[in-house]
Amino acid sequence: MEYQYPIDHDWSTEEVVDVIHFFETIERAYEKGVKREQLLSVYRRFKEIVPGKAQEKKLCSEFEEVSGYSSYRTIKKGKESDLGAIIRMQP
């Protein structure tokens, strides 16, 4: 896909890479499926970088607007799934 990931220019290079990895994992959940543990692990790292709900919602909304992929629904499904599950989302 050809779009830019939402990032904050105040983040370090490592933080930008980790946030992009989070959004790429959301994409993979829609395109191929992703292990629940991997999804929740990258989400935990995302929350270390973006601890506030308002900023999280803003970034995830911007991502959904350009990609069509819902981070919220993907994480919700991951949290509700059993250990070892593969998370596959429907567009």
Rank of each mutant, 00 (worst) to 15 (best):
S67A: 01
Y3V: 14
S81K: 06
E15W: 00
E37D: 09
C60D: 06
P91T: 12
Y30K: 08
E80Q: 13
H9W: 05
K53P: 03
K47E: 03
Q4A: 12
Y69T: 10
G68I: 02
I20W: 04
L83Y: 13
V42C: 12
A85K: 08
D8S: 13
K32N: 14
M1H: 13
V16P: 00
E65P: 05
G68D: 11
L40Y: 04
L83G: 08
Y3H: 14
S61C: 06
L59D: 06
L39S: 05
E15V: 03
E62N: 08
I75V: 10
K53R: 08
S41R: 15
I49T: 04
K47Q: 03
Q4C: 05
I86H: 02
T74K: 02
V17C: 02
P91G: 15
I86G: 01
P91C: 12
R44D: 15
R88F: 06
Y30W: 09
D8H: 12
G68A: 11
Y3A: 10
K79A: 09
D18F: 05
V34Y: 00
R45D: 08
R44H: 15
E27Q: 13
E64N: 05
E27N: 07
E56I: 12
E15R: 00
H9E: 15
K77H: 04
Q55I: 10
E24W: 04
S81F: 09
P6W: 02
I20A: 02
T13V: 15
R28F: 01
F46S: 04
Y3W: 15
T13Y: 14
S71F: 02
E62L: 06
I7N: 09
P91Q: 13
K47A: 01
R36A: 09
R36P: 05
I49G: 09
T13C: 13
K58V: 06
I75C: 05
S41I: 14
F23M: 01
R36Q: 09
R88S: 08
E24P: 02
I7Q: 11
K79L: 15
H9C: 11
A29D: 07
H9T: 10
D10Q: 12
V50A: 05
M89T: 04
K57E: 12
E56A: 14
I7F: 12
C60Y: 06
E27C: 00
A54M: 14
I87W: 00
K53L: 11
W11T: 11
S41G: 10
L59F: 02
E65H: 14
K47I: 02
R44Y: 13
L59K: 10
S67I: 01
I7R: 07
V50N: 00
I7P: 12
F23Y: 02
